[in-house]
Amino acid sequence: MILVLSITLPIILIFYILHKTLTRAKTTLPPGPPPLPLIGNLHQLGMAADPHIYLHQLSKKYGPIIHMKLGSIPVLVIYSAKLAKQVLKSQDLAFCSRPKLLGQQKLSYNSSDLVFTPYNEDWREMKKITHIHLVSNQRIQSFCPIREEEITKILSTSGNQALNLSEVVMAASSRMVCRVAFGKRYEEGGPGMKRFYQILKGFDNLTTSFFVSDYFPALSFVDKMSGRMNSADAVCKVMDSFYQELIDEHRESRRIM
């Protein structure tokens, strides 16, 4: 088996490199650093201490638009204000959709929310509903007493003592979100707020985690073998339980009314 692999693998790699070289020569892709077989340019970004500085150095060599590959995923890096305007404004419809990443797909129940849904008719309808019922001027103004109350509480309890502004803003923002979105206030340090922070942490970990299947779809089994898939499912179960409790409480309050 070792002998067979030692003979076949170099042949496969040679054919792969030749195929990619010929394909790249026939296309009109922007210039960029040559990718390695299979992993593309992942090794270059992974080893860069400051990716933004590394990309700036690449822009000096290859120009304001750079083509790279993260595994099997093609990537365009825009390093020009003029081109950025083309991407974000003039050609917005061609670039405004969202990639289907595993962590985001799990959090959004397979792209069923507004944040991670690809640009399509469903997304436009959800945006319309959100704008009318959640983020309209009238709706935002109705939450003004909540914001004022939370800010007043911070000012009244702080006195002349030094504060960790990051912690204070995070705590106040979390309480505001809970009161506006869930209709309930969790006390700082209480079990409800601790659970909410745990969910936020799991949400952050899941959206920023590296899943092999995002860049190498054929190697999706690696995520299962490494336990990342089980960890993602565990986070989603905690969130499901939290959402279900809120829904049950809301239904019960409507029955009482």
Rank of each mutant, 00 (worst) to 15 (best):
G71I: 02
D214L: 06
K127P: 02
H133P: 02
E148P: 01
L3V: 07
P217S: 11
L22A: 14
V180G: 05
F196N: 04
V180S: 09
P51N: 11
F15A: 10
S158H: 04
R24Y: 08
V238A: 03
L155T: 04
Y197E: 14
L206S: 08
L134Y: 07
R139T: 05
F221I: 13
E245R: 13
C144Q: 13
K194W: 04
L102T: 11
I66M: 13
V222M: 07
Q105I: 00
N110V: 02
L246C: 11
Q138C: 08
T27N: 07
P51S: 10
I146S: 03
S59Q: 04
E252N: 07
I39S: 03
D92P: 03
K82C: 00
H52N: 10
R24S: 10
G40C: 09
R175D: 03
A81H: 07
S80C: 10
K184S: 15
C144I: 05
H52F: 14
V115A: 15
N164A: 10
I53L: 14
L55N: 07
K128V: 00
V75K: 03
Q91R: 12
C178A: 15
L107R: 01
L114Q: 09
H67A: 08
P51C: 11
R139D: 00
S253R: 13
G190P: 06
L93M: 12
W123P: 01
K20R: 15
N137I: 00
F203W: 06
Y54M: 10
Q44T: 11
K60D: 07
Y119L: 07
G71C: 06
R124P: 01
Y186W: 13
R251P: 00
Q44Y: 08
C178I: 12
P99I: 11
M193E: 13
I65A: 10
L114A: 11
L42W: 01
K237T: 04
Q161H: 09
A162M: 13
L246Y: 00
D50F: 08
V180I: 15
A171H: 03
G63E: 10
N230Y: 07
I256N: 12
S241M: 03
I140E: 06
F242I: 04
Y54L: 01
R98Q: 12
L5Y: 12
S253C: 08
R185W: 12
I66L: 11
D122N: 08
E150F: 02
K20A: 06
M68I: 06
E188H: 15
A84I: 06
K26Y: 05
K194C: 09
L5W: 09
D214R: 05
T152N: 07
N205W: 01
I78Y: 02
Y16L: 03
H131D: 01
D204W: 04
G192I: 12
T27R: 13
K201E: 15
R124G: 00
H52V: 13
D214N: 14
L5R: 04
I154N: 05
E187A: 15
D223R: 11
M47F: 09
V177D: 03
Q244M: 09
